[in-house]
Design a protein around this nucleic acid. Sequence first.
DNA 1: AATTCGGGGGA
DNA 2: TCCCCAGAATT
Length: 331
Amino acid sequence: MSANWKNRLLEHYRDHARDLPWRVRPGSNRRPDPYHVWLSEVMLQQTTVATVTPRFARFIEKWPEVSDLASASREVLLAEWAGLGYYARARNLHGCAQQVVALGGFPEDEAGLRELPGIGAYTAAAIAAIAFDADSVPIDTNVERVVARIEGIEGPLAETRSEVHDAARALWPKERAGDFAQAMMDLGATICRPKTPRCGECPVSGDCAAFATGAPEAIPAPKVRKARPERRGTAWWIERDGAVWLVRRPAKGMLGGMAALPGSEWTDGAWPEEPEQAVRHVFTHFALTLAIEPRDVPPEGEGWWQPIDRIDEAGLPTLYAKVVEAMTLVS
DNA sequence: AATTCGGGGGA
DNA sequence: TCCCCAGAATT
């Protein structure tokens, strides 16, 4: 047992690392595939490991190399992303893959990676450290929470973020920065959890200021949450010969570029009359109740007839998948 | 500095 | 129900 908490953390990581498909074993001589590291990091932005794991496998099976992803069509890529949310990630993923191919490979330093679409401060540092063994400091919410607790930095992260980041950069080791990052993230995900930390299993609790207070879960302070507005809208269900009329949403904004059912705008007001059928879907910053209105004739504009028995191939985001679910349960 | 972007796992 | 997740881009 090492006296230094950073070494104890790395030893704990060596013995208890989560076995994730985009990883190599800690201490391995091999480096992970930069394509795998990049794809997993983008998928994991605001998305849990449990959700990402099966979707990552499907992407790699479908597009084994970054060049395969670059040459895929935008529509097919978005359809494969359907249900994962934050669809700007999928649009940027496509552009990023094409730039990487044009560059002849991934940039190996943080600054080069940061230039690519969909790669921000965290992801650039993570790829540089994990794939290329750079001494960068990837700070995600796990790292923020673990550092805030070890250092005893109280208050909501919105107020303490710069202090926490300074502390993280100060304590981060120059060697094995990628292993240290993954060790910190595993600790945050499995032991140093937001609500009920398992300090009894933690290899560094003896060096943790939050543990010493007796209420480690109180750091960081919970964020103040805004109320979620209610919105309403209508989706048109236009069915003919076993097919339904779909449209593609505008490239930017909510569900940008995704396949969708046609319909009205979403507004704060009520409907003229209460709908017979509706689905409810909760987004991060508003909740939507979407009335389903059967129609006979497609609206003006682009669209296509999608066979309902092959609706999966359209790649509908979850909101519209719920509508399809509701309409096909009836018949 | 605030807001906009999805969705689901797990308590 | 509610919280939170390997954040980025835009305003």
